[in-house]
Design a protein around this nucleic acid. Structure first.
Lengths: 172, 172
DNA sequence: TGGTTATTTCTGTAATTACAGAAATGTTAT
DNA sequence: ATAACATTTCTGTAATTACAGAAATAACCA
């Protein structure tokens, strides 16, 4: 697929942003390309469009599949696997939220709890145990929040966002 | 400052997590240490505790100051600068939210809008313009949401999180 | 079966990033 | 001023990460 300047620009930017959030640039670029593609793409078209090695695409796709952001599709009369990403931005967002919670928030909470237990046992300084307790409280609330948000349907998530002010006025 | 095993464990984990979110490991470790420290620390104590080079600490601190997460404090009778981080986890969270919005969401929205304008001009495929429009809508809502969240006081943010179910029941 | 094409895994290299130590700069005191 | 210490910036190296190309594996077909 030959890219237009707009597509190139978007793909470059998406790669850059993904990278800032700890996602490999190529992975984010493949994702960006699939978002723009009007139909599922086979790996070699991705190589060609992005001008990267076949192996790179293979690994990037695998990574995106690990996130649940890319699926395989078979095209009639074509032996190659074609790849597509979700069409709904909100659904993608919820998936990423779910994954990052699982990969980062949960282990952090677990580690913090271990730290707190050990700190109590080993009589660490009051300041340490207190600080850990604050962090645990924060992470627990975040965790609950993420659980609930992640369980929303894409449309509910969008509606909640659109509610905007209403939500914040609950506490403001 | 001699670290206890609990402190070490926490610092290591915090460094790891920060790193997964695109923050340099040393930077996150310095931040972790300052969170645990009962009082502001001078740079050389940080070197010693974390066993890293002085220059590394200097740069890490500068980075954290850039985020607004670390401040300089002067201690009577000591020429050295001492560093402390915020005591309130929620305030830290709001600051990070604000910064990341500024650094990542805003530029993305800007780039997306440029893409959309250029796509219209250059008659890119309908699919492309449509996809960009969806992304823009999503990023705009996220941006508004982040603006409002970021403007909350730490206590309000906490209260909003504690409200939990109530908020989600607005749409669920 | 062997031939053909698709895909993954392996291997080496290039590029980037992290970071220690040295040098330079700035600061305070005498 | 210059000595003593504090801090930042520079420079080279080590470690990691990214990634192309080759080799291996798998899938399909005739």
């Amino acid at each position: 697929m030959k890219l237009t300047p707009v597509m190139e620009k978007f793909i470059l930017h998406w790669g850059e942003m993904g990278w800032r959030w700890g996602i490999n640039r190529s992975v984010a670029q493949v994702h960006a390309l699939l978002m723009l593609a009007p139909k599922p793409l086979p790996a070699d078209e991705i190589c060609e469009s992005l001008d990267v090695a076949r192996s790179n695409v293979s690994n990037s796709i695998k990574e995106l599949q690990g996130w649940g952001l890319v699926r395989v599709v078979h095209v009639f009369g074509d032996r190659r696997e074609h790849f597509e990403t979700l069409r709904d931005v909100w659904e993608m967002f919820l998936i990423i939220l779910r994954e990052r919670k699982k990969r980062e928030i949960d282990p952090t909470l677990h580690a913090l709890r271990e730290c707190a237990t050990e700190a109590a046992k080993s009589k660490d300084a009051d300041h340490t145990t207190e600080r850990l307790a604050q962090l645990i409280e924060f992470m627990e609330l975040s965790s609950n929040w993420a659980d609930k948000a992640q369980a929303l349907s894409p449309t509910s998530a969008k509606r909640l966002c659109q509610l905007g002010d209403k939500v914040f006025r609950l506490v403001g």
